[in-house]
């Protein structure tokens, strides 16, 4: 169960504001996290606590394919991102690096900055402790649940590979 404070954003939060290109000369998660959200919310890194939750509106993570973006968010301590929709590359990247994401327009509408949310990733249940309301996010398709279950794409690819080696 995740329990944390909400950092609230609008639509089209792009990967350039999540992690600006001037910091892409490193792949170190800690260094990336120290600049997370810098160009949209310079106070974010000072405010964020482990377990906190980002809530945003449409098309979260649009723009570049940089995996540095979900890596920076995850490393900053964010436990989960909830949005109306995610840009498709960000969606894949988040699953691949193990950053939990949920699509739930109702929860987005009913959530303000500073609210406390409780999120159960398995059931997709989101409770807003501050307002007392509860919501249910769209479940992942079975294949993606499987990806999450095995611990991300690296593990999945590793098992595929060993299956092939055994076959030959």
């Amino acid at each position: 169960m995740i329990r944390g404070m909400v950092h609230r954003y609008g639509s089209n939060v792009d990967t350039d504001v999540i992690i600006p290109a001037r910091y892409l000369n490193t792949t170190d998660p800690k260094e990336l996290a120290s600049h997370c959200m810098e160009d949209i919310d310079p106070e974010f890194v000072k405010r964020v606590k482990p377990g906190d939750i980002i809530v945003a509106e449409d098309n979260f993570g649009c723009g570049s394919s940089r995996e540095h973006a979900p890596i920076a968010i995850k490393e900053s301590g964010i436990a989960c991102v909830i949005a109306n929709t995610f840009a498709r590359i960000f969606y894949r990247n988040a699953l691949n690096v193990g950053l939990p994401i949920l699509e739930c327009p109702d929860a987005v509408e009913g959530t303000r900055a500073g609210d406390i949310l409780e999120v159960d990733l398995e059931s997709g249940k989101i409770s807003n402790v501050t307002t007392g309301k509860t919501y249910t996010a769209k479940p992942f398709p079975p294949f993606m649940q499987e990806l999450i279950r095995v611990g991300g794409l690296v593990n999945y690819a590793r098992s595929q590979l060993s299956r092939r080696t055994r076959a030959t």
């Binding site: 394919s65 940089r66 690096v97 398709p141 991300g152 794409l153 690296v154 690819a157």
Partner: peptide, 20 residues
């Protein structure tokens, strides 16, 4: 289509990837 680095890593190993 564009993907992230981990997708590409798996593709370099397997020669395939998943799409919806």
């Amino acid at each position: 289509t564009g993907v992230g680095s981990t997708d590409l890593a798996a593709a370099m190993a397997l020669g395939e990837t998943w799409f919806k």
